[in-house]
Write a protein that binds this DNA or RNA. Sequence first.
RNA 1: GGGAGGAUGGCGGAGCGGUCGAACGCACCGGUCUUGAAAACCGGCAGGGGCUCGCGUCCCUCGUGGGUUCGAAUCCCACUCCUCCCGCCA
Length: 428
Amino acid sequence: MLDPARLRSDLDAVVARLADRGYSFPTAAFLALEQARKDVQVRTQDLQTRRNALSKAIGQARGKGEDTDALMAEVAGLGDQTRALEGELDRIKGELEALLLGVPNLPQAGVPQGRSADDNVEVRRVGTPTVFDFAAKDHADLGVGTGLVDFEAGVKVAGARFTVLKGAIARLHRAIAQFMLDVHTAEHSYTEVYVPYLVNADSMRGTGQLPKFEDDLFKVPRGAGDPPLYLIPTAEVPVTNLVRDAIVAADTLPLKFVCHSPCFRSEAGSYGRDTRGMIRQHQFDKVELVQIVAPDASDAALEALTAHAETILQRLELPYRTVVLCTGDMGFSAARTYDIEVWLPGQGAYREISSCSNFEAFQARRMQARFRNAAGKPELVHTLNGSGLAVGRTLVAIVENHQRADGSIAIPAALRPYMGGIDVIPAT
RNA sequence: GGGAGGAUGGCGGAGCGGUCGAACGCACCGGUCUUGAAAACCGGCAGGGGCUCGCGUCCCUCGUGGGUUCGAAUCCCACUCCUCCCGCCA
């Protein structure tokens, strides 16, 4: 959520910056609501003041044994009037909040101007696209070729966009996650956390998935009277919400968490896209990096977090590039985002394998996540997160980049300790 | 699932329906004292919001939501969560 004070004091600049990312701020509706809010709030508070003063006077008079009939007559009806106006104020504030919850974050200064992914700017490229002296296959063919990736079983058990892994490929999947966790905890000093995979609506609202993107989520209804839960689309949600409604001590910052979890996405609206293979699944694993930092530290933290994610690709000998997303391609809650794209020979393209963002105070304001600053006053923290990395897509990248002419797959050296020492997954 | 108790500021913990946003203690901050520190003493110290150039001032918040009342931390109802006991399951 944007800072309401800034919206009031600097509306034109905010509207202009939102337009840069293709969002049209409902200025007229906002101004009308804001005017109504101000008007009703002042009247409400005025009534409350009078009611409180008279009530207090009644108490004092009673204490002295004086007659209170005159005061009682004066206050008669004030309570009802006040309650009516309070209800009106609540309604207006609710509308205002609903409006603001639908407004995306402001891009940082320096984020390139653009409308789509075509306008993203490459900031570095590491390694070179893998070349083969044989006809390379994509991961779907390779996986089926090993007999260890079973797309049909996934469809039978659950449906489209679900996949079953077996044997050495299932182990490779596990090895990738273990490796990432070990690197981030041991070398990058993140604290590993295990969290719920079903969360409540407050958590989804805190990180920005609700109210606007409910269609992207799997919603789990419960018994009558119990509110629904939601399957997490990323560990970002439960992990970042650890600091919701909290005031943390300044000396505990930065908080750095790493979390391996499954992620569930409805993929509504992506029909027909990436239907082949396991690039886009309803369920996939991800190792997520989350940082909670002081505001003045968030820019540097984004660079560091992105580098932590890139380390994994380097260790796995995978070529990649890092791009900064343009204003028009950024996610709803982000102020600045780097996407890390791994080279996929099967597609002959770089494909997203990690997205690292600084949300500044956008999520913190929704969550009321604060720290006690040097002045001793609560102040909103900044939140960041990034994939470090998506496990399923890393599996795809390894299979495709480390394939051999006979259809077997070489295991990168970094993963062999996690694979019981084997260095190749043979084709059947 | 059954029963009992509880929820108050960063923490602990008081609070006959009326000067209670809340005693007291701890923690924290500032000061006096001290070579420095500790101790002692003095003072400060919840969050959010409105109006105001500012000094200020007003409103809301004692788990959440309703209700009673001129007035609710305090009374009533519902809900949530926590603790303990019994049962059940892992």
